[in-house]
């Protein structure tokens, strides 16, 4: 659980986005759903990091 905490807000947002994407795209297999979660989480964390970096400047 401690590791999950490191995901932060960005990770949580990414997972939520992934769930929304699954509901919209409706993949035919579990692999597709997992891929969507992974992609959305990675995307959200990346965006979060970029925003954080901009704010620090």
């Amino acid at each position: 659980m401690g590791d999950l905490g490191k995901l932060g807000v960005s990770g949580a947002v990414g997972i939520m986005l992934g769930i929304v994407a699954i509901l919209w795209i409706k993949p035919d297999n579990a692999g597709g759903s997992a891929l969507l979660i992974v992609i959305c989480t990675a995307f959200a964390i990346t965006v979060g990091a970029i925003i954080k970096a901009i704010r620090r400047r």
């Binding site: 795209i25 993949p27 297999n29 579990a30 692999g31 597709g32 759903s33 997992a34 891929l35």
Partner: peptide, 12 residues
């Protein structure tokens, strides 16, 4: 959908 179905299987 086509993309995630195809690459999702590969991921699994």
């Amino acid at each position: 959908r086509q993309l995630v179905n195809r690459y999702g299987n590969d991921l699994m």
